[in-house]
Design a binder for these strands. Structure first.
Lengths: 138, 138
DNA sequence: GTCAATGCAAAAACTTTGCAACATT
DNA sequence: AATGTTGCAAAGTTTTTGCATTGAC
């Protein structure tokens, strides 16, 4: 665990957003101005392989990372691309996971659920009437 | 609907796999040898905007496309990246997503579910060997 | 010293775009 | 002629990699 890797992990744990590699780079650069983007990529890879962070390959085009490795779900804004956590009660999870096993020959190790919708900043009521139009706040 | 677009749509409907843009390009090229990759990308974009095909942004790093627009779920092999359909009743999933909606301030409009695991070809017992797993057979 | 990790830069991988030519109307 | 699409190539974006150097043991 090098200093760079430590700082990357800390910043990611601290961030409540779900930053892209580039955003992690910017965060970390405030503390380690000479760090390189390649190092950030390499360490994000190592950290997620170790299970210390989570890789969110599926949240849109660009990969995102999450310092929270507890099992939790995400919601993504269709307008601005922002990603937030969903607070869930543990109760329905087990029953749900149970229902998943049957439909495939794969050996299932996990699942990913992403809710999609519109974040508070992106004017949910404008879904039908395209008024001011949501802007990209990502 | 140009000839190129028609062929792209046909090949995608015909394919049981969930091909990447590049793979669509290869498929289509067998019938239209002079088609360009740019045209494939443009038409995949148009077709998914029209709802004639489905864009699988969340299935791994590289974007995939699905000629089946019916609501169904996917399972992705963590080892080789292959994507298959999952036979699954939507009911428990929708109920579960419903339960999650309470945990966010977003206005939820939909959800995406992807199972992850290991396909029959990819030796499920190798799960422990994290990095040295099977190579990409995609 | 050894060995892994780093910074840097170049390359790779994937996707989008500018543009002139080409259809179709 | 007007419109929209194509093939091609170039450029854009995101991610990975080669390599000499650095730093922790």
């Amino acid at each position: 665990m090098t200093h760079q890797r430590q700082v990357i992990l800390e910043e990611l744990k601290k961030a409540r957003s779900h930053p892209t590699a580039d955003q992690v780079y910017e965060l970390v650069r405030r503390r380690l101005p000479r760090i390189s983007l390649g190092t950030v990529y390499r360490n994000l890879e190592v950290l997620s392989a170790q299970g210390l962070i989570q890789r969110l390959d599926w949240a849109g085009t660009q990969r995102r990372f999450d310092g929270d490795v507890e099992n939790h779900y995400h919601v993504r804004c269709l307008a601005c691309g922002r990603v937030d956590d969903v607070v869930l009660e543990a109760a329905p999870v087990a029953a749900f996971a149970e229902a998943l096993s049957g439909g495939t020959e794969y050996q299932i190790t996990g699942h990913r659920l992403e809710l999609t919708g519109f974040c508070p900043q992106c004017c949910p009521e404008e879904r039908s009437a395209q008024g001011a139009g949501p802007k990209n706040l990502d």
